[in-house]
């Protein structure tokens, strides 16, 4: 029984099948929202309201010709998309999608899974860097260096912002943090500043406007993905979608009280809360213009990082007050 349970967990819910369906749905939601905010229609053709468009795009790309550049590092170039998808899917499994028994930590919910999740979210950045670097295209190379430069900017504020609620909750376990804030909802307000910082950093991590610098089409063509086509590009796009879901689920867990209520209610909670986070991310995307890579770094270190430290201070003070 335990084996079947594990298999279902890995492959169906919240494993690969659910991840695929939900992340493509989130892509549709994001695209549609972005389009409506821009006074466009967005996808309309495939499925009701174009809801199947991302899946259609995925299969279309899977059937396209796959070109590997002559000068590219072929092994690396081909393996990276699969690695990337595997990493973000693994990260998805760590999200407490439905109620875990808080009393007994297990393989997928243990003390310290927050840290593992954050590091699993850092890896895709390196995947992008390696993908760009191994393509040996000029535009990809510039894209790759931009990916790394940006990483120095947003990574520290993101970690500080996400870890400070954990400090208040006195736990490194996602399920416990969520449970802590559900019991004391007013403490969520303490982390409001951290939530804003985390939203901006996640936007940068996901390389969406105003931080879509590594693949700014008007500057460096496709950036890191210039040489990718066919199946590999399809996997990369799916990877970005899954990363969007994971990152928004992480923010929902840490800042919005997680997903309580058993199997069905938990799922409902998960969907509503991630969609709220994605809504905010899309709103940021629609209302800003792309900034330069040097502006990202200076913005992060001038505003985001000090504010994140301030958040940390607030949390420590509040912790002293309530104990």
């Amino acid at each position: 029984m335990a084996t079947v349970r594990t298999l279902v967990y890995l492959f169906i819910y919240p494993g690969l099948l659910f991840i695929f369906i939900y992340s493509t749905f989130c892509e549709w939601y994001d695209r549609k929202l972005y389009a409506r905010l821009q006074n466009r229609m967005g996808p309309t053709h495939t499925g009701r309201g174009g809801i199947l468009q991302p899946i259609a795009d995925f299969f279309k790309l899977m059937s396209k010709e796959d070109i590997v550049p002559e000068r590219a590092d072929k092994g690396m170039f081909s393996a990276l998309p699969a690695f990337g998808l595997a990493i973000v899917s693994t990260a998805m499994l760590l999200i407490p999608v439905w109620n875990y028994q808080l009393s007994q930590p297990s393989l997928i919910s243990f003390n310290g899974d927050l840290i593992v999740l954050l590091y699993l979210l850092t890896l895709p950045t390196f995947i992008f860097f390696l993908a760009g670097w191994s393509s040996t295209n000029l535009f990809s190379t510039i894209g790759a260096t931009r990916v790394l430069t940006m990483l120095f900017g947003y990574e520290v504020p993101l970690f500080l912002a996400v870890l400070s609620p954990a400090i208040l909750a006195n736990s490194w376990r996602l399920a416990e943090i969520a449970a802590f804030y559900r019991q004391r909802p007013w403490l969520m307000l303490v982390n409001l500043l951290g939530f804003v910082i985390a939203l901006i950093s996640v936007q940068a991590k996901l390389e969406r406007t105003p931080f879509d610098i590594p693949h700014a089409e008007t500057e460096i063509v496709g950036g890191t993905f210039t040489e990718y086509s066919g199946k590999k590009l399809a996997l990369f796009r799916l990877m970005l979608d899954v990363e969007l879901v994971v990152a928004s689920a992480l923010l929902a867990t840490v800042f919005l009280g997680g997903f309580p209520g058993g199997f069905w209610l938990g799922l409902l909670n998960f969907i509503i809360k991630t969609l709220v986070v994605i809504f905010i991310l899309s709103l940021i995307r629609a209302t800003t213009s792309r900034i330069r890579v040097d502006q990202v770094v200076s913005f992060s270190w001038r505003y985001l990082a000090p504010l994140a430290v301030l958040q940390l201070l607030i949390v420590i003070l509040v912790k002293g007050l309530i104990s």
């Binding site: 905010l37 821009q38 006074n39 466009r40 406007t209 700014a216 008007t218 629609a286 213009s289 792309r290």
Partner: peptide
């Protein structure tokens, strides 16, 4: 559009 501000471009 060149500045990456697509909403402005569309409007």
């Amino acid at each position: 559009h060149e500045a990456g501000f697509d909403s402005f471009f569309m409007y």
